[in-house]
Deep mutational scan, measured.
Amino acid sequence: KKVTINGVEIKFNNPEEAVKFALELAKRLNLRIEFHGDQIKIE
């Protein structure tokens, strides 16, 4: 399963991993996060 985070394609074994990764990243950098299907936007 491929997920695009800020235009960067990252391959994950499952979608939950991708979501956890994105949330952790957003929390660490104190950023806002948006989900659009397989696209995750962090700003």
Rank of each mutant, 00 (worst) to 15 (best):
E16H: 10
I33W: 04
I10M: 09
V19W: 13
K2I: 15
Q39E: 15
E9F: 06
I5Q: 02
K1W: 15
L29Q: 06
P15E: 11
N6D: 08
K2S: 14
N14W: 06
K27C: 12
R32I: 11
P15Q: 09
G37S: 08
V8P: 01
K1R: 11
E9A: 07
K2G: 07
G7K: 03
I10L: 12
F35V: 08
N13R: 12
R32Y: 09
R28N: 07
N13W: 07
L29Y: 13
F21M: 04
L29H: 10
K41D: 04
E9L: 11
E24Q: 07
L23R: 06
L25D: 00
V8L: 10
G7M: 04
E24T: 06
I10T: 03
K20N: 07
I10W: 10
V3H: 03
N30D: 06
I10F: 13
E43W: 15
D38G: 07
K27E: 14
A18Y: 06
G7T: 03
I10A: 03
R28M: 11
N13E: 12
A26Q: 03
I42G: 00
K2Y: 14
E34W: 09
E24R: 07
L29S: 03
N14Q: 05
E17F: 08
K11F: 15
V3M: 03
N14F: 08
Q39A: 13
F12S: 02
F21D: 00
V3N: 01
K41M: 13
N13H: 11
V8H: 10
P15W: 15
F21P: 00
I40M: 03
V8F: 12
R28F: 10
N13G: 09
T4K: 06
H36Y: 12
K27W: 08
L25E: 04
I42N: 01
I40L: 04
R32F: 08
F21V: 03
R28D: 08
E16S: 11
L25C: 08
G37D: 12
E9S: 09
N14L: 09
L23I: 12
E24G: 05
N30Q: 06
I40A: 00
D38Y: 06
I5P: 01
E16K: 09
D38L: 06
G37F: 09
A26R: 02
E16W: 13
E43R: 08
Q39L: 15
L23C: 09
K41S: 10
N6G: 10
I33N: 00
R28G: 05
E34V: 09
N14V: 07
L31H: 02
N30M: 04
L23M: 10
R32L: 10
I33Y: 04
A22E: 00
K1V: 15
E24L: 07
E16P: 04
A18V: 07
L31Q: 01
K2N: 11
L31E: 01
L29D: 04
R32E: 05
T4A: 04
K2W: 14
K2F: 13
I10S: 02
N14Y: 09
R32K: 14
H36E: 12
E24Y: 09
G37V: 09
A22Y: 08
N6M: 11
V8D: 02
L25H: 03
F35R: 02
L23K: 07
T4D: 02
V8S: 05
G37C: 01
Q39N: 14
K11C: 14
E16T: 11
L29K: 01
N13V: 10
E16A: 11
D38V: 06
K27V: 08
L25T: 05
Q39T: 15
K27A: 14
N6E: 03
G37P: 12
L29P: 07
R32W: 07
E9I: 12
A18D: 01
V19I: 14
I42L: 15
N30R: 03
L23T: 09
N14S: 14
L23E: 10
N14M: 06
K1Y: 15
T4P: 02
I40D: 01
A22T: 04
A26K: 02
N13T: 12
I40S: 01
P15D: 11
K1S: 14
F35I: 12
F21K: 04
N6I: 06
L25V: 09
I33S: 00
F21G: 01
F35S: 03
L31T: 05
I5L: 09
L25S: 01
I40R: 00
I40V: 04
I42Y: 03
K27T: 13
E24M: 07
K11E: 15
G7P: 02
L29I: 05
I33T: 01
F21N: 02
P15R: 12
I42T: 01
I10C: 10
H36A: 11
E9M: 08
H36W: 11
N6F: 14
K2V: 15
F12L: 04
E24V: 05
I10Y: 14
A18S: 04
F35H: 04
I5E: 01
E16I: 09
A22G: 02
F12C: 07
H36V: 15
E17R: 05
K2M: 13
D38Q: 05
E43C: 14
E9G: 05
K1L: 15
V19S: 03
A18H: 01
L31A: 14
E34L: 05
I33C: 04
L29F: 11
E16V: 11
I42P: 01
E16R: 10
Q39S: 14
K1I: 15
N14D: 11
D38N: 10
V19Q: 04
V19E: 06
L29M: 07
A18T: 04
A26H: 02
K20W: 15
L31F: 06
P15G: 11
I10D: 00
R28V: 10
V3D: 02
F35M: 07
E34F: 10
L31N: 00
N6Y: 11
P15F: 14
K1T: 15
K11H: 15
E34A: 04
T4L: 14
N30E: 07
G7R: 02
K11A: 12
A26L: 07
N30Y: 04
E17N: 07
D38W: 09
R32P: 06
E17Y: 08
F35W: 13
K2R: 12
E34D: 07
R32H: 11
I10V: 07
E34G: 03
N14I: 08
L31I: 12
K41Y: 14
T4E: 05
N30K: 08
A26V: 06
V3Y: 04
L29R: 00
R32V: 12
E9P: 06
I10R: 03
K2Q: 10
E17S: 08
E43V: 15
K1G: 13
E43H: 14
E43K: 11
F12K: 00
I33L: 10
E9R: 03
E34H: 07
I10N: 01
D38M: 06
V3I: 09
N6H: 10
N30P: 05
L25M: 09
F35A: 02
N13K: 11
V19D: 03
L31M: 13
Q39V: 15
V19R: 08
N30C: 10
L25A: 05
T4I: 15
V8Y: 13
H36C: 12
K20G: 03
V19Y: 13
L31C: 05
E34M: 05
F12M: 04
R28T: 08
A18I: 05
K41C: 13
N30W: 07
K41T: 13
F12T: 03
N13D: 13
F12V: 03
I33D: 00
I5N: 00
E24K: 05
K11Q: 14
I33F: 05
E34C: 05
K11P: 09
E24P: 01
I33E: 00
K1M: 15
K27I: 10
K11Y: 15
K11R: 12
G7W: 05
A22S: 02
E24D: 10
L31K: 02
E43M: 14
Q39C: 09
E24C: 12
H36N: 11
K1Q: 11
R32M: 08
I33Q: 00
F21I: 05
V3G: 02
A26T: 04
N14H: 09
I42D: 00
L31D: 00
H36Q: 12
L25P: 00
A22W: 08
T4R: 03
N30A: 04
E17L: 08
K27N: 12
K1P: 13
F12R: 02
N13A: 14
P15S: 13
G7H: 03
R28P: 02
E43G: 13
K27L: 13
V8R: 09
E9N: 05
D38I: 05
K20C: 14
I40N: 01
E34S: 10
R32S: 09
I40Y: 02
I10K: 03
K20R: 13
V8A: 05
N14E: 05
F21L: 04
G37I: 08
K20A: 13
I33V: 14
K27R: 10
I42R: 01
G7V: 05
I42E: 00
E43Q: 12
T4Q: 06
A26E: 03
I33A: 03
K41E: 05
G37A: 09
V19L: 14
E43Y: 15
T4S: 09
E43P: 03
A22D: 00
I33K: 00
F35D: 02
F12A: 02
P15A: 13
V3S: 00
G37W: 07
F35Q: 03
V3W: 05
F12W: 04
